[in-house]
Design a protein around this nucleic acid. Structure first.
Length: 486
RNA sequence: GGCCCGUUGGUCAAGAGGUUAAGACACCGCCCUUUCACGGCGGUAUCGCGAGUUCGAUUCUCGCACGGGUCACCA
């Protein structure tokens, strides 16, 4: 599997937004192809008109583009084995099914829905598994001709072996064996002449030269049927890689139906694309070493099917957040500013502040961009805080000595010409030295006075720089006023 | 219900008969520090249960329990 031309595909149905499990499957398919210098193919499986959602195809394109999962062949760019939209391939499947009928691996079935329903009812009543009873499997040539000529509607069913076992290999789950007796004579071609998914999928994968099939493990139990199809045609069976689902908790899958987080939702919540891709890669797959932060090209290098785990993985927002924070900290200040600015503007309407300084203090304190507005809400207007905020055991501050400190600080700051981190720092520390007190005794009250908050992004000096001289001094005066009024 | 699959800390997970059972997130503590955060150091916590096989099982086998998947003229 290491060399040769590896071709993988991502074959989504355009039924809505891209959920995380789907994206992960696409990612693994992409990684496996690229790791082996192969091709990653996009095929849109849009044959279910009932579930078709307007705009869903664009979501697929946009998500793959945004995450960097560029496809080598697909509906928009074409390729040697198109068309890449399943609905445009419909006409050919029946001929393939007929080939199977010739070979005795499939047969015409004229049973109508009433009979099938009746059958199901009887089977259910007697506790049997619902399964086609082979009623039409042994019709004579004459009978078939006669019904065909009479225009009786029919489907084409796959003739499953009735005894023995079928074993197949999966790269993740190993060898799996099932009794052929449990295999249903599934429908290949529907009464309208169109193929079922199970049939179209196999034919398409073969025609498109797919060598490695990566998909959710809900397909594990139909894989023997697929293989019987490949064998009946005499086609080479692809390598199977079935992935366990991404869960929202121990018992429920992450799903569109439950309205669980989609890729778009995560981005809207302030997560970085790269962080989401990185985290998703780690959900159900473990790299060889201890490193966990990887760019997409690094993932390509690192990816190995042997690292895919069998058991389902629960989507953990806390971990995603941590990885997002890691990505944020690794950004350059310029990059961070660019990303953070919309959120900064959201939380701060004032224009006369030092945005660069603000961004600087925010960067190590941001895990999620959407957390920013709340962190900086004190800038526009000083909150109406309680003077108890001035009391801090470790700093040994209380309302009395904070009042003293602020009174000392006020003239020092007022006298400053240059207003920057260095000048304020020097002035305040000179004051601290002159007074012979601990840093905290001066600095803590300053921070409280200018922010009115218990926790702030940055210390008193940094906040003063951000707020500017006029505003800082006004807030210190306000502090003195509040403390004096007690 | 039949069949298939899974089960290592709260979460993601490494591990391949003998390990002090990695690492990350989360949590707790300490250090750094003008708060918080960052960074550094340390800590709590895991092999679902029961039988085998073996000198020795998290690792192999079988049962059980629990969880998931699948049994459509949907994809």
């Amino acid at each position: 599997m290491a060399d040769g031309k590896v071709r993988t595909r991502f074959a989504p149905s355009p039924t809505g937004y891209m959920h995380v499990g789907n994206l992960r499957t696409a990612l693994y398919a992409y990684l496996l192809a690229k790791k082996n210098n192969g091709q990653f193919i996009l095929r849109i499986e849009d044959t279910d008109r009932e579930r078709y959602v307007e705009g869903a195809v664009d979501i697929i394109y946009n998500t793959l583009r945004q995450t960097g999962l560029v496809w080598d062949e697909g509906p928009d760019i074409g390729g040697p084995v198109g068309p890449y939209i399943q609905s445009e391939r419909m006409s050919m499947f029946k001929d393939y099914a007929l080939q199977l009928v010739e070979k005795g691996a499939a047969y015409y079935c004229f049973c109508d829905k009433d009979r099938l329903e009746e059958l199901k009812k009887i089977q259910h009543a007697s506790g049997m598994a619902p399964k086609y009873d082979g009623h039409c499997r042994h019709l004579s040539k004459e009978e078939i001709e006669e019904k065909l000529a009479a225009g009786v509607p029919y489907v084409i069913r796959q003739a499953m072996p009735t005894e023995g076992q079928t074993t197949f290999h999966d790269e993740v789950f190993g060898d799996i064996t099932v009794d052929n007796s449990v295999l249903d004579d599934q429908i290949l071609i529907k009464a309208d002449g169109m193929p079922t998914y199970n049939f179209a999928n196999v034919v398409d994968d073969h025609l498109m030269g797919i060598t490695h099939v990566i998909r959710g493990n809900e397909y594990l139990s139909s894989t023997p049927k697929y293989n019987l199809l490949y064998e009946a045609f005499g086609w080479e069976i692809p390598v199977y890689i079935h992935c366990s689902p991404v869960m929202k908790n121990a018992t429920e899958k992450l799903s569109k139906r439950n309205g669980d987080a989609s890729f778009e939702d995560l981005i809207a919540k302030g997560y970085l694309t790269e962080a989401v891709v990185n985290y998703i890669a780690l959900l159900g797959w473990a790299p060889k070493g201890e490193r966990e932060i990887f760019t997409l090209p690094e993932l390509v290098q690192e990816f190995d099917v042997s690292g895919i785990s069998k058991s389902p993985a629960i989507f953990d927002t806390a971990k995603l957040k941590a990885i997002n924070g890691e990505y944020i900290r690794r950004m350059s200040l310029e990059d961070f500013c660019e990303h953070a600015m919309p959120y900064i503007k959201e939380g701060c309407k004032r224009e006369d502040i030092d945005f660069t300084e603000l961004a600087k203090v925010l960067q190590t304190r941001t895990e999620l961009f959407t957390d920013i507005p709340e962190q900086i809400d004190f800038i526009d207007a000083l909150p109406d805080y309680d003077t108890a905020l001035y009391c801090h055991k470790k700093m040994k501050t209380n309302e009395e000595n904070s009042l003293e400190s602020l009174k000392e600080v006020l003239p020092v700051l007022e006298a400053l010409d240059a207003w920057n981190e260095e000048s304020i720092h020097d002035a305040l520390f000179a004051l601290i030295e002159r007074l012979g007190v601990k840093n905290g005794l001066i600095l803590w009250p300053v921070r409280v006075a200018v922010s009115g908050k218990q926790f702030t992004p940055g210390g008193g000096i940094e906040l003063c720089v951000i707020l500017g001289k006029e505003e800082s001094i006004a807030r210190i005066k306000k502090g003195i006023e509040k403390l004096s009024a007690r």
